[in-house]
């Protein structure tokens, strides 16, 4: 019985490999322009899901993990894509909303997701990196608000 279950599981695992997703990195249309320290920190913690410069991990080739990676990158790019930052900036309302979303994520410490941090320990920001992003965000929000 136990052997049958293992064989069934192995078959399901093998069949799951047939469902594959393409790993695309479209051209960068207009990347975020930020101070180097901010950019470095954002690249380290966010760019894999929130840009067109994804470093596809090994798990992106192994179902069912690849399904989660594909979902995270697809959804992440839809919600906030640093490679399309120029497009956000062309509308002040959108720009400020994206900045506020980032500020919320930093304040509540809910990004990157826990399972991503588990697999990518280097995505964890140091306190100084966290602070430099928070300060930059505050300045950007203030300057955007005053120019509206």
């Amino acid at each position: 019985m136990r052997r049958k279950a293992l064989v069934a599981l192995a078959c399901i695992f093998a069949a799951a490999q047939a469902i594959r997703f393409e790993h695309t990195n479209p051209p960068v249309a207009g990347d975020l322009a930020a101070p180097p320290a901010v950019e470095r920190a954002l690249r380290q913690a966010c760019y894999d899901c929130h840009s067109n410069e994804t470093r596809w991990p090994w798990s992106a080739n192994l179902a069912p993990f690849s399904w989660l990676v594909h979902y995270d990158v697809t959804e992440g790019r839809k919600r906030l894509n640093f490679s399309s930052w120029d497009a956000y900036v062309s509308d002040p309302g959108t720009r400020i909303q994206k900045l506020r979303n980032l500020q919320k994520a930093m304040t509540e410490d809910d990004m990157p997701p826990w399972y991503y941090r588990l697999l990518h320990p280097d995505s964890k920001l140091s306190e100084s990196q966290h602070d430099v992003i928070v300060q930059w965000l505050a300045g950007e929000i203030t300057s955007t608000q005053s120019s509206q």
Partner: peptide, 12 residues
Amino acid sequence: EFESFERNRECV
């Protein structure tokens, strides 16, 4: 929240 993924627009 008015949002369009295709046009990169998001405003409350």
